[in-house]
Protein backbone atom coordinates (compact mmCIF):
# COMPACT_ATOMS: atom_id res chain seq x y z
CA UNK A 1 0.00 0.00 0.00
CA UNK A 2 2.81 2.37 0.91
CA UNK A 3 4.20 1.68 -2.54
CA UNK A 4 0.98 2.79 -4.20
CA UNK A 5 0.94 5.96 -2.15
CA UNK A 6 4.54 6.71 -3.09
CA UNK A 7 3.65 6.20 -6.72
CA UNK A 8 0.65 8.50 -6.40
CA UNK A 9 2.68 11.29 -4.84
CA UNK A 10 5.46 10.97 -7.39
CA UNK A 11 2.92 10.90 -10.21
CA UNK A 12 1.41 14.09 -8.87
CA UNK A 13 4.83 15.71 -8.74
CA UNK A 14 5.75 14.74 -12.27
CA UNK A 15 2.35 15.58 -13.67
CA UNK A 16 2.34 19.03 -12.08
CA UNK A 17 5.75 19.76 -13.58
CA UNK A 18 5.04 18.10 -16.91
CA UNK A 19 2.00 20.24 -17.64
CA UNK A 20 4.35 23.23 -17.63
CA UNK A 21 6.38 21.68 -20.44
CA UNK A 22 3.21 20.79 -22.30
CA UNK A 23 1.68 24.28 -22.07
CA UNK A 24 4.64 26.02 -23.61
CA UNK A 25 5.34 23.37 -26.19
CA UNK A 26 1.75 23.24 -27.27
CA UNK A 27 1.52 26.94 -27.87
CA UNK A 28 4.92 27.80 -29.25
CA UNK A 29 6.64 24.47 -30.13
CA UNK A 30 9.47 25.38 -27.81
CA UNK A 31 10.77 22.99 -25.20
CA UNK A 32 11.44 24.95 -22.07
CA UNK A 33 14.51 23.22 -20.67
CA UNK A 34 14.75 25.88 -17.97
CA UNK A 35 11.51 24.68 -16.40
CA UNK A 36 13.31 22.92 -13.56
CA UNK A 37 15.30 26.04 -12.77
CA UNK A 38 12.23 28.27 -12.88
CA UNK A 39 10.55 25.88 -10.50
CA UNK A 40 13.50 26.07 -8.16
CA UNK A 41 13.48 29.85 -8.40
CA UNK A 42 9.86 29.91 -7.25
CA UNK A 43 10.67 27.80 -4.23
CA UNK A 44 13.48 30.18 -3.35
CA UNK A 45 11.16 33.13 -3.80
CA UNK A 46 9.01 31.51 -1.13
CA UNK A 47 11.99 31.59 1.23
CA UNK A 48 12.23 35.34 0.75
CA UNK A 49 8.51 36.05 1.02
CA UNK A 50 8.37 33.78 4.08
CA UNK A 51 10.91 35.96 5.83
CA UNK A 52 9.00 39.09 4.78
CA UNK A 53 5.58 37.87 5.91
CA UNK A 54 6.62 35.50 8.66
CA UNK A 55 3.33 35.97 10.55
CA UNK A 56 1.01 35.16 7.70
CA UNK A 57 2.18 32.06 5.85
CA UNK A 58 -0.65 32.15 3.32
CA UNK A 59 0.18 35.66 2.19
CA UNK A 60 3.80 34.57 1.80
CA UNK A 61 2.66 31.62 -0.27
CA UNK A 62 0.43 33.74 -2.45
CA UNK A 63 3.11 36.37 -2.95
CA UNK A 64 5.64 33.75 -4.02
CA UNK A 65 3.21 32.24 -6.51
CA UNK A 66 2.30 35.64 -7.89
CA UNK A 67 5.97 36.60 -8.25
CA UNK A 68 6.61 33.35 -10.13
CA UNK A 69 3.84 34.18 -12.55
CA UNK A 70 5.47 37.54 -13.16
CA UNK A 71 8.84 35.89 -13.68
CA UNK A 72 7.35 33.68 -16.39
CA UNK A 73 5.77 36.59 -18.21
CA UNK A 74 8.98 38.62 -17.91
CA UNK A 75 11.05 35.74 -19.27
CA UNK A 76 8.84 35.71 -22.30
CA UNK A 77 8.79 39.47 -22.77
CA UNK A 78 12.49 40.05 -22.42
CA UNK A 79 13.99 36.83 -23.69
CA UNK A 80 11.83 34.41 -25.60
CA UNK A 81 9.99 37.09 -27.56
CA UNK A 82 13.21 37.82 -29.37
CA UNK A 83 13.48 34.17 -30.33
CA UNK A 84 10.09 33.94 -32.06
CA UNK A 85 10.66 33.38 -35.72
CA UNK A 86 14.15 32.02 -35.11
CA UNK A 87 14.92 28.32 -35.42
CA UNK A 88 13.14 26.26 -32.77
CA UNK A 89 16.47 24.83 -31.72
CA UNK A 90 17.93 28.27 -31.06
CA UNK A 91 14.96 28.98 -28.84
CA UNK A 92 15.48 25.73 -26.95
CA UNK A 93 19.15 26.51 -26.46
CA UNK A 94 18.16 29.91 -25.14
CA UNK A 95 16.09 28.21 -22.47
CA UNK A 96 19.09 26.03 -21.65
CA UNK A 97 21.20 29.15 -21.26
CA UNK A 98 18.50 30.72 -19.12
CA UNK A 99 18.57 27.62 -16.93
CA UNK A 100 22.32 27.89 -16.44
CA UNK A 101 21.98 31.57 -15.61
CA UNK A 102 19.21 30.94 -13.08
CA UNK A 103 21.18 28.18 -11.43
CA UNK A 104 24.03 30.60 -10.87
CA UNK A 105 21.79 33.43 -9.70
CA UNK A 106 19.92 31.30 -7.20
CA UNK A 107 23.15 30.32 -5.48
CA UNK A 108 24.42 33.90 -5.58
CA UNK A 109 21.27 35.24 -3.97
CA UNK A 110 20.22 32.49 -1.58
CA UNK A 111 23.50 30.53 -1.14
CA UNK A 112 23.87 26.83 -1.86
CA UNK A 113 22.81 25.57 1.55
CA UNK A 114 19.81 23.36 1.95
CA UNK A 115 16.82 25.46 2.95
CA UNK A 116 13.60 24.51 4.63
CA UNK A 117 10.68 26.72 3.66
CA UNK A 118 8.20 24.74 5.76
CA UNK A 119 10.14 25.76 8.83
CA UNK A 120 10.36 29.36 7.64
CA UNK A 121 6.58 29.42 7.39
CA UNK A 122 6.24 27.80 10.76
CA UNK A 123 4.51 24.72 9.38
CA UNK A 124 5.08 21.15 10.38
CA UNK A 125 4.88 18.49 7.71
CA UNK A 126 2.72 15.96 9.53
CA UNK A 127 2.58 12.41 8.39
CA UNK A 128 -1.01 11.26 7.96
CA UNK A 129 -2.27 7.69 7.92
CA UNK A 130 -4.30 6.63 4.87
CA UNK A 131 -5.41 3.19 3.73
CA UNK A 132 -2.82 1.41 5.79
CA UNK A 133 0.03 3.58 4.57
CA UNK A 134 1.31 7.03 5.45
CA UNK A 135 1.40 10.19 3.45
CA UNK A 136 3.01 13.51 4.35
CA UNK A 137 0.74 16.55 4.52
CA UNK A 138 2.66 18.22 1.70
CA UNK A 139 2.34 15.04 -0.35
CA UNK A 140 -1.42 15.06 0.09
CA UNK A 141 -1.46 18.74 -0.84
CA UNK A 142 0.54 17.87 -3.96
CA UNK A 143 -2.01 15.32 -5.10
CA UNK A 144 -4.88 17.70 -4.44
CA UNK A 145 -3.16 20.58 -6.21
CA UNK A 146 -2.29 18.50 -9.23
CA UNK A 147 -5.89 17.35 -9.54
CA UNK A 148 -7.13 20.93 -9.24
CA UNK A 149 -4.60 22.25 -11.74
CA UNK A 150 -5.47 19.61 -14.31
CA UNK A 151 -9.20 20.11 -13.97
CA UNK A 152 -8.66 23.86 -14.12
CA UNK A 153 -6.46 23.69 -17.17
CA UNK A 154 -8.82 21.32 -18.91
CA UNK A 155 -11.79 23.63 -18.34
CA UNK A 156 -9.75 26.66 -19.31
CA UNK A 157 -8.51 25.19 -22.57
CA UNK A 158 -11.83 23.66 -23.49
CA UNK A 159 -14.36 26.34 -22.60
CA UNK A 160 -12.81 29.72 -22.01
CA UNK A 161 -12.27 32.00 -24.96
CA UNK A 162 -8.62 32.55 -24.15
CA UNK A 163 -8.09 28.83 -23.77
CA UNK A 164 -9.54 28.20 -27.20
CA UNK A 165 -7.39 30.98 -28.61
CA UNK A 166 -4.37 29.39 -27.00
CA UNK A 167 -5.10 26.09 -28.71
CA UNK A 168 -5.73 27.93 -31.96
CA UNK A 169 -2.43 29.79 -31.77
CA UNK A 170 -0.62 26.51 -31.13
CA UNK A 171 -2.07 24.90 -34.22
CA UNK A 172 -1.69 27.70 -36.69
CA UNK A 173 -0.03 30.87 -35.44
CA UNK A 174 -0.38 32.62 -38.79
CA UNK A 175 -4.10 32.14 -39.02
CA UNK A 176 -4.48 33.03 -35.37
CA UNK A 177 -2.83 36.37 -36.03
CA UNK A 178 -5.06 36.91 -39.03
CA UNK A 179 -8.07 36.33 -36.85
CA UNK A 180 -6.99 39.13 -34.59
CA UNK A 181 -5.37 37.05 -31.85
CA UNK A 182 -2.27 38.72 -30.47
CA UNK A 183 0.35 36.00 -30.38
CA UNK A 184 2.51 37.84 -27.90
CA UNK A 185 -0.31 37.95 -25.39
CA UNK A 186 -1.00 34.26 -25.88
CA UNK A 187 2.66 33.27 -25.60
CA UNK A 188 3.15 35.42 -22.52
CA UNK A 189 0.06 33.82 -21.03
CA UNK A 190 1.42 30.35 -21.73
CA UNK A 191 4.74 31.20 -20.14
CA UNK A 192 2.98 32.70 -17.15
CA UNK A 193 0.73 29.68 -16.66
CA UNK A 194 3.63 27.32 -17.14
CA UNK A 195 5.78 28.97 -14.50
CA UNK A 196 2.73 29.20 -12.26
CA UNK A 197 2.18 25.45 -12.31
CA UNK A 198 5.93 24.97 -12.02
CA UNK A 199 5.92 27.25 -9.01
CA UNK A 200 3.17 25.23 -7.35
CA UNK A 201 5.22 22.10 -7.90
CA UNK A 202 8.47 23.66 -6.73
CA UNK A 203 6.93 25.16 -3.61
CA UNK A 204 5.07 22.01 -2.59
CA UNK A 205 8.12 19.81 -3.17
CA UNK A 206 10.28 22.16 -1.12
CA UNK A 207 7.66 22.12 1.66
CA UNK A 208 7.77 18.35 1.56
CA UNK A 209 11.46 17.65 1.39
CA UNK A 210 13.48 20.84 1.67
CA UNK A 211 15.14 22.84 -1.03
CA UNK A 212 18.50 22.87 -2.75
CA UNK A 213 19.80 22.71 -6.30
CA UNK A 214 18.88 19.03 -6.76
CA UNK A 215 15.35 20.24 -7.50
CA UNK A 216 16.52 20.95 -11.05
CA UNK A 217 17.01 17.24 -11.50
CA UNK A 218 13.40 16.55 -10.51
CA UNK A 219 12.34 19.07 -13.14
CA UNK A 220 14.46 17.32 -15.71
CA UNK A 221 13.07 13.91 -14.78
CA UNK A 222 9.52 15.16 -15.28
CA UNK A 223 10.42 15.96 -18.85
CA UNK A 224 10.40 12.31 -19.98
CA UNK A 225 6.96 12.09 -18.42
CA UNK A 226 5.73 14.89 -20.67
CA UNK A 227 7.35 13.33 -23.72
CA UNK A 228 6.18 9.79 -23.10
CA UNK A 229 2.61 11.04 -22.97
CA UNK A 230 3.06 13.15 -26.06
CA UNK A 231 4.34 16.67 -25.73
CA UNK A 232 1.15 18.39 -26.79
CA UNK A 233 -1.36 16.50 -24.70
CA UNK A 234 -2.35 17.12 -21.09
CA UNK A 235 -3.97 13.70 -20.69
CA UNK A 236 -0.76 12.26 -22.08
CA UNK A 237 1.29 14.16 -19.51
CA UNK A 238 -0.83 12.68 -16.74
CA UNK A 239 -0.50 9.14 -18.03
CA UNK A 240 3.18 9.59 -18.84
CA UNK A 241 3.79 10.77 -15.30
CA UNK A 242 2.05 7.71 -13.94
CA UNK A 243 4.18 5.40 -16.08
CA UNK A 244 7.44 7.11 -15.20
CA UNK A 245 6.61 7.38 -11.51
CA UNK A 246 5.54 3.75 -11.28
CA UNK A 247 8.65 2.56 -13.10
CA UNK A 248 10.86 4.65 -10.87
CA UNK A 249 9.30 3.66 -7.54
CA UNK A 250 9.18 -0.03 -8.42
CA UNK A 251 12.77 -0.02 -9.68
CA UNK A 252 14.01 1.61 -6.51
CA UNK A 253 12.04 -0.81 -4.39
CA UNK A 254 12.91 -4.02 -6.17
CA UNK A 255 16.21 -3.39 -7.96
CA UNK A 256 18.56 -0.58 -7.07
CA UNK A 257 18.17 2.88 -5.57
CA UNK A 258 20.92 4.29 -7.79
CA UNK A 259 18.66 3.65 -10.75
CA UNK A 260 16.18 6.32 -9.75
CA UNK A 261 17.80 9.02 -11.85
CA UNK A 262 18.09 6.87 -14.93
CA UNK A 263 14.76 5.08 -15.13
CA UNK A 264 12.81 8.00 -16.57
CA UNK A 265 15.35 8.34 -19.33
CA UNK A 266 15.38 4.62 -20.06
CA UNK A 267 11.61 4.69 -20.47
CA UNK A 268 12.02 7.79 -22.60
CA UNK A 269 14.43 6.09 -24.99
CA UNK A 270 12.19 3.06 -25.33
CA UNK A 271 9.32 5.38 -26.11
CA UNK A 272 11.32 7.39 -28.62
CA UNK A 273 12.36 4.30 -30.48
CA UNK A 274 8.89 2.81 -30.78
CA UNK A 275 6.50 5.74 -30.76
CA UNK A 276 8.38 9.02 -30.91
CA UNK A 277 5.33 11.23 -30.83
CA UNK A 278 4.25 9.82 -27.49
CA UNK A 279 1.11 8.07 -26.34
CA UNK A 280 -1.32 10.90 -27.05
CA UNK A 281 0.78 13.26 -29.13
CA UNK A 282 -0.06 14.31 -32.64
CA UNK A 283 1.89 12.37 -35.15
CA UNK A 284 2.82 15.18 -37.48
CA UNK A 285 4.92 16.83 -34.79
CA UNK A 286 8.00 15.04 -35.98
CA UNK A 287 8.11 16.75 -39.30
CA UNK A 288 7.37 20.16 -37.98
CA UNK A 289 10.53 20.39 -35.97
Amino acid sequence: MQLAINIAVLTAIYALIACGYVLIYRVSRVLNLAHGELMMLSAYLLITTASLFSKTPFIALGAAIFLSLCVGVLVYLFLMRRMTGEMVLAAVLTTVALGVLLRGLVVLIWSAQQQNPAQALGWVNHSLPVFGGRISAAGAALIATTALVYVGLFLFLRFSRYGIRMRAAGQNPLLAAQRGISLHVIYALAWGLSTLTGALAGILISLDSGLDSTMVLIGLKAFPAALVGGLDSLVGALLGSLIIAAAEVLMIYYVDALLSDVVPFLVLILMLVFRPWGLFGTREELDRV
Partner: peptide, 23 residues
Protein backbone atom coordinates in the same frame (compact mmCIF):
# COMPACT_ATOMS: atom_id res chain seq x y z
CA UNK B 1 -9.75 40.21 -42.31
CA UNK B 2 -7.98 37.74 -44.55
CA UNK B 3 -9.21 34.34 -45.64
CA UNK B 4 -5.92 32.71 -46.52
CA UNK B 5 -5.21 30.41 -49.42
CA UNK B 6 -4.39 27.33 -47.38
CA UNK B 7 -4.35 26.46 -43.66
CA UNK B 8 -7.51 28.47 -43.31
CA UNK B 9 -9.06 26.74 -40.29
CA UNK B 10 -7.69 25.45 -36.99
CA UNK B 11 -7.72 21.73 -37.72
CA UNK B 12 -7.92 20.35 -34.17
CA UNK B 13 -10.64 22.70 -33.00
CA UNK B 14 -14.30 21.97 -33.54
CA UNK B 15 -16.41 24.14 -35.81
CA UNK B 16 -17.90 26.07 -32.90
CA UNK B 17 -14.49 26.60 -31.35
CA UNK B 18 -13.18 27.83 -34.67
CA UNK B 19 -15.90 30.43 -34.63
CA UNK B 20 -15.30 31.50 -31.05
CA UNK B 21 -11.52 31.86 -31.28
CA UNK B 22 -11.38 35.01 -33.43
CA UNK B 23 -11.17 38.42 -31.80
Amino acid sequence: VLVPERDKVFPNLSVVENLSAPV
